[in-house]
Design a protein around this nucleic acid. Structure first.
Lengths: 204, 204
DNA sequence: CGCAGTTCTTGACAGTGTCAAGATTGAGCG
DNA sequence: CGCTCAATCTTGACACTGTCAAGAACTGCG
């Protein structure tokens, strides 16, 4: 079980490296991630990661892609738990799920939105983020069919909704938000902000 | 005028270094900024910056603090230009000014919200960001006095407003937004989103 | 058993941030 | 003017980084 028993063919190096990235980002931020440090933690040589991910940017890109999958999971779970019987409730659940992902996976969130640290044109990344956006447009479409848009542009409403939950996530993780407000539970804050949005902007 | 005429006592090294940081961030992102590269561009030795800013993080912190000043400028300019005769119009102007700053100074915006690249506890930074937040709470207070909150928590409304404009800025700069929508002018988009917010959430 | 092919190591390279020590300069003061 | 001194910048060294080329060790398949 010690690392000397598995000098070659680690068996699950990619997974171990992903865990190492999560730890490194949590401790030192994206800017402080070191390929060699991550490799050391996994018990392999300094250039073993290159074989699986090509480069440091490739490793972080894989980490971000995994993050998009987790984001979709979190959003879908929250929507399912809400038993949303209208578009507004569904959109609010999406918002809560988005923020819940950011709070639960801060390292992934940070890397996903650090464009210059990853390979932004990676097809897997693009597809995963496309899927996440589709969930949003689907909910907005449902609201439109329910007559909740009141003549407003679906595009503007979608951008507003996405911006709000993304901004809340980013500001919360930056720490600049918590120090200025009384509410210290990000999930309750996300629920309140999401409710405010759908109740005011998307009434029946 | 050439750098050989001023080998010592550059005269305005800090300013020249700030310009170099802006260029480096624009070209390579926060993660790709190199102290030595910035120093080279300014025509000084690789460790000259340390004398003024202490470290790389210190240099980026100074850059971020300058960014907060520019943010306040941008917001105040937009509010002044709007001749806002009520709190809702003032808040919408603040939103437009926030996004306009992010679009006009993407390098500053990126560094300001890269907590692990800067010295987050720097007092100058804290004061500057405090001032920017005060503008927001003041506008929300004005809305409250005008009876536009309709029983909603001022704190939640403030967080929602800040989150929305911050998220819009971050998403736009990340490039993930423009590729999915038809509106390609970020200023018009900011105006539309800000209007949607105040008209739906803060009616008279 | 032999032998690809995958997985990982080793060693080298240029480039990085930081630190200590020293060189150069301009301003203030006799 | 001449001296001193602090501020400014340079030089050189250190450990560390990401990438690359070459080779070693293991696995599975014939």
């Amino acid at each position: 079980m010690s690392r000397w028993t598995v000098p070659y063919h680690h068996g699950s190096l990619p997974e171990a490296l992903m865990d190492g990235v999560a730890r490194a980002v949590t401790e030192h931020g994206v800017t402080g991630v070191s390929l060699r440090d991550v490799a050391r933690q996994a018990g392999v040589s300094h250039s073993a990661p290159a074989h699986h991910f090509g480069s440091k940017a490739g490793m972080l890109t894989a980490f971000a892609a995994r993050g998009y999958d987790l984001l979709a999971e979190s959003v879908i779970a929250e929507v399912a738990a809400a038993w949303a019987n209208d578009g507004a409730a569904e959109l609010a659940a999406i918002g809560r799920g988005y923020v819940a992902f950011a709070i639960g996976h801060p390292a992934e969130f940070e890397v996903m939105f650090s464009p210059d640290a990853i390979e932004i044109d990676d097809p897997r990344l693009h597809a995963a983020s496309e899927a996440a956006y589709a969930v949003l447009t689907s909910a907005i479409g449902r609201c439109a069919r329910e007559g909740r848009l009141h003549g407003r542009s679906p595009e503007v409403v979608a951008v507003a909704a996405w911006s709000m939950v993304h901004g809340l996530s980013a500001l919360w993780l930056s720490g600049r938000l918590a120090e200025r407000i009384t509410e210290q539970d990000p999930h309750r804050l996300a629920a309140a902000v999401s409710s405010l949005f759908v109740e005011s902007i998307l009434p029946a």
